[in-house]
Structures are given as structure tokens and as C-alpha cells.
């Protein structure tokens, strides 16, 4: 049985039911049909938005980080039904936000990736940070980046890339 998402405001979405949700992803409407327990990460991935990666599904790795109303969240720790009516941004965003565009360039130039599995999550984490706190100092950036795990690069190249993107966004001086 299926019903539309907003009904969860007035009736139970039962365990065996699916909600018909309209998610706003990268400025486009994406319809998903999911049970209450479906995570936002799984809902996006099922619709082919597989740039949101799953490395642990319990909040520890950050590979699934996306922006929800502009702020970085772990999409494995959010239910798809909770995201209705929110603005979502993922690694696939095209055209990219200012921050994402600058970060993509910087990640490429500073060789901030190897296997690339953590990259989407780091890009979104950093995009959220640079939008919300454009003047974050290097120590703050480093602290925020410790939220996500990368097994390939040793981390510092990613930090360097984010700081470079920040410089670009702030007009070359930050």
C-alpha cells in the first residue's frame, strides 16, 4: 500500500506501507516510494543517485554526507520520510553550487583522492562548511574534516584542497 508523504503528519505510516515522497534533490524533484525505515541514503541510491556512498551505514565514516537545507548530514542517519520538503544537495549536483565547483577543481589540482570512494562525502562536508562558515580558520577546517574517513590519501591532501577552494571562494585571499 502506498500513500503520499505528507500524510505522516496525520496518520501512521505502517511498517508494511510505502510512502510516496517528493524529494527535492539538486533542484529537481525526485519521486521515491519507500517504507518508513528506508534511509535517505538508500532512497537516493535506489533512484540512481549512487554518488552518495555507503561505507558503514551507522554514522562513522561520512561517505554518505549530503547537504540537507545547506548543512552537511549523514544520509545514513536520516530517514527518507524525514527529508520531504527539505532541499537536498548531493555530489552529482549539476551545475554545481559555487562551493562544490571550487572544491571539485581543488580536489583535482591537489590530488585529494585516490580510490574516490570517500570523495563525494568529503566534497559535500566541505561544501556545507565553506557556505556556512566561509572564514573558518585552518584548524576549524581540519577539525570539521575529521568527521569523515579516507583510507587512501592520508587526509592532509584533502585538507589542502579544501583550504585552496576556500581561498578561491574568498577571492584569492583568506
Amino acid at each position: 500500500m502506498t500513500y503520499t508523504g505528507h500524510r505522516v503528519d496525520s496518520a501512521w505510516l505502517e511498517p508494511d506501507e510505502h510512502a510516496d515522497l517528493d524529494l527535492l534533490v539538486n533542484g529537481r524533484s525526485v519521486r521515491v516510494q519507500v517504507p518508513a525505515r528506508c534511509t535517505l541514503a538508500d532512497a537516493l541510491r535506489e533512484r540512481g543517485l549512487t554518488g552518495t556512498r555507503l561505507g558503514c551505514e551507522q554514522g562513522s565514516c561520512g561517505a554518505c554526507t549530503i547537504l540537507l537545507d545547506g548543512l552537511p548530514v549523514r544520509s545514513c542517519l536520516t530517514l527518507a520520510v524525514q527529508a520531504e520538503g527539505c532541499e537536498l544537495e548531493t555530489a552529482e549536483q549539476a551545475p554545481p553550487s559555487r562551493e562544490l565547483g571550487a572544491l571539485r577543481r581543488a580536489f583535482h589540482e591537489h590530488r585529494a583522492l585516490q580510490c574516490g570512494f570517500c570523495t563525494s562525502g568529503f566534497l559535500m562536508l566541505a561544501a556545507g562548511l565553506l557556505r556556512d562558515e566561509p572564514d573558518a580558520g585552518a584548524a576549524r577546517v581540519r577539525e570539521v574534516l575529521s568527521a569523515n574517513l579516507c583510507r587512501c590519501t592520508g587526509g592532509v591532501p584533502i585538507l589542502r584542497a579544501v583550504l585552496a577552494a576556500q581561498r578561491e571562494l574568498n577571492g584569492g585571499h583568506a
Binding site: 505522516v8 503528519d9 496518520a11 501512521w12 505510516l13 505502517e14 511498517p15 508494511d16 517504507p35 518508513a36 525505515r37 534511509t39 538508500d42 558503514c56 551505514e57 551507522q58 530517514l79 520520510v81 524525514q82
Partner: peptide, 13 residues
């Protein structure tokens, strides 16, 4: 590592 089934509701008060 998928959540078990449950019912869901979002009250407004």
C-alpha cells in the same frame, strides 16, 4: 545494517 520495520509519524504539537 538496515533498520528493522517500524511505523512512523510526525506530530506537529
Amino acid at each position: 545494517m538496515k533498520p528493522p520495520p517500524f511505523a512512523y509519524r510526525r506530530p506537529s504539537s
